[in-house]
Nucleic acid binder design. Structure first.
Lengths: 112, 112
DNA sequence: ACGAAAGTACGATGAGTGTCAAACTTTGAT
DNA sequence: ATCAAAGTTTGACACTCATCGTACTTTCGT
């Protein structure tokens, strides 16, 4: 079986503001969202420009998925990521846009 | 001297998204912002409906002030708080509104 | 002058979490 | 069959931060 290969996605209506802000407060996660937001196509986990190890990246993707911000699906060995923009915007109007454009103005600063 | 009685307020332009999100991720601080946002008048620290001790509240007000979200000034022994809405909206368009209305839909859940 | 009220400052503490390395799993290519 | 590529899982560790109590400061009444 590869049922485990289909990660669980929450109903966006069951996601809380608390969860979303906890997800977006991390610079690495916000960078993932920004890159997704600026890309016309979905992006594989390994194709992101991140400054952390693979296992740490996995952690960040899970947090974003559980916050209802991204959808993940497998293509071969690659895990693809897409922004759940419409659903999310419906639940939290204006929030994603505000954070993304704010982040665009002041890029994420990695710790030294 | 009571120079120390005038707390330092940052120029909102020097505030980073990171700082703002770190400020807004805490439920108590978000509650402060929501209460201020729904009030026509400024509110003294002690007049807020908060579920933490006085010293903890002081900490939260400082974080909000340093994130450019509120302005504080003394009236007698009371420290008044006002939302720096216009300045903040100019720096981070839509962010405050999005968070406040999202928080209004899903009120801050206090830990048990 | 004295005391109460409103906050602030200072440690100390406990829980959370971002980080990594190492071992493992699944898929695709040779 | 074998091997490499792509992620995941599992501990473990370090560091941050929300919280509180106590002591202190400033202001306002009486």
């Amino acid at each position: 079986m590869d049922t485990d290969r289909v990660p669980e996605h929450p109903d966006v209506r069951s996601v809380t503001v608390q969860q979303v802000l906890e997800a977006l407060v991390d610079p690495v996660r916000r960078s993932i969202i920004t890159q997704l937001s600026g890309s016309p196509a979905d992006i594989a986990c390994g194709a992101f420009d991140l400054s952390v190890s693979k296992s740490t990246a996995t952690h960040h993707f899970r947090v974003l998925r559980e916050a209802g911000l991204i959808r993940q699906y497998y293509v071969g060995t690659s895990r693809m990521n897409s922004l759940r923009r419409d659903e999310f915007d419906d639940r939290f109007p204006g929030l994603l846009d505000a954070v993304v454009s704010a982040d665009h103005a002041t890029p994420a600063q990695h710790r030294p």
